[in-house]
Amino acid sequence: MAGYIGSKVVKALITLWLIFTVAFLAARISGDAMDFIMPEGMNEEAREAMTSYLGLDKSWLEQYWLYVRNVFHGDLGTSFHFRQPVIDLYTQRFIPTLTLCGLAMLLSMAISIPLGVIAALKKNRPAGFLIQSAAFLGYAVPNFVLAILLILVFSFHLGWLPSSGSDTMMHYIMPVTALACTLIASLTRFSRSALLDVLSQDYIRTARAKGVGNFSVLTVHGLRNAMITIVTVLGLQVAALVSGSVVIENVFSWPGIGELLVFAAIKRDYPLLQTGVILVGTIVIFINFIVDVVYVLIDPRIQPGS
């Protein structure tokens, strides 16, 4: 098990390094940070002084090398815009994002698996058809559209829920719902088809032939196997969920990584952007790691480390 976790960590570090490299290059190719830092009409000398102060006069390779070296010394850089270490800026924001994504994931599972089960059991019946259609609709609506709709209805017209911030439990309802919607829809559909597939297997017939009750057949024999597919899909959707959170955080002014990340991208705040991307990558890898552990727990055919 230790070796399994060790190899996972090594793979995670390589992935993060690749993500960082892409972010590093993409940020620089897409625009010059100086255009955003210096006001219009500043003189050339001041601009050059600022450029060399921020280390942007060096070649990309040199900047890359310096940054990587600093990261290994625990220094993720200083934000161009805020003039603060980026690590301080993100510390406060890491937990809200993780909470938002985690809650959205739990909510998706809590809703979509039962819905998928009902849709599978009521196949060709009105209830099943309704769930299938609703899931299709949920899948088709982009989460930012849903987010704005939610704000319009529940904050603007009804005034029930706060539209921004994260101070109380009430603040969580809309962002989590908006973020979870796509995942609920896709997981419902996958749960349904996974369960239908499992229920047509020979071992389900064996279980029935043994005289096992319907509920046990469904849960012990059916869902346990269907969960393998569901968890796989969940693992694949995590990246989409976390990147979706960037948009949702901005719509709801959620004080998370995503909100700051968008700011960093617009302002070409390289250190802020690079660190943000690494953090988002870390969250995706972390959730995927949990998924992998769950995977080993439900499927005895998977041996960790082999």
Binding site: Q201, Y203, T206, H221, R224, N225, I228, D299
Partner: peptide
């Protein structure tokens, strides 16, 4: 295929 793969 007649035995459940995830149960002992």
């Amino acid at each position: 295929t007649s035995l459940n793969p995830v149960l002992s």
